[in-house]
């Protein structure tokens, strides 16, 4: 972790920028299973619902090796390269 000193007048809280949210879902949606038991059940159900509501999208499934650790860099890059959206089932 790097620490830097705020160069501004500190009137605005430091915020992390998030990717702009598109208005509709198209293309490929990554479903990331964090490898907690029954996470796949949740994602299966979500996949059914999503395909109903957004026909034409492609769903690709991915899994983390373990829920206890952050996703490996290679997996994050793979998802970034292959998908337009990510839905991740976090914790229980």
């Amino acid at each position: 972790m790097t620490i830097i000193m705020d160069p501004t007048n500190e009137r605005v809280p430091v915020t992390r920028q998030i990717t702009p949210r598109p208005a509709s879902i198209t293309g490929t949606v990554a479903f990331l299973d964090i490898a907690k038991p029954r996470g796949n059940v949740l994602l299966d159900r979500l996949e059914t619902l999503l395909k109903d509501r957004a026909p034409g999208i492609v769903v690709r499934r991915y899994s983390k090796p373990t829920f206890t650790k952050p996703a490996p860099e290679s997996l994050r890059q793979q998802i970034r390269a292959e998908a337009d959206f990510v839905i991740e089932g976090l914790a229980d």
Partner: peptide, 21 residues
């Protein structure tokens, strides 16, 4: 001055661009 922690997975250079510095 306020200290800003940049997470280890963030690139400090990109972070500073994102913050508008």
């Amino acid at each position: 001055a306020r200290r800003i922690e940049i997470a280890s997975q963030d690139d400090p250079f990109e972070f500073m661009f994102d913050q508008g510095f």
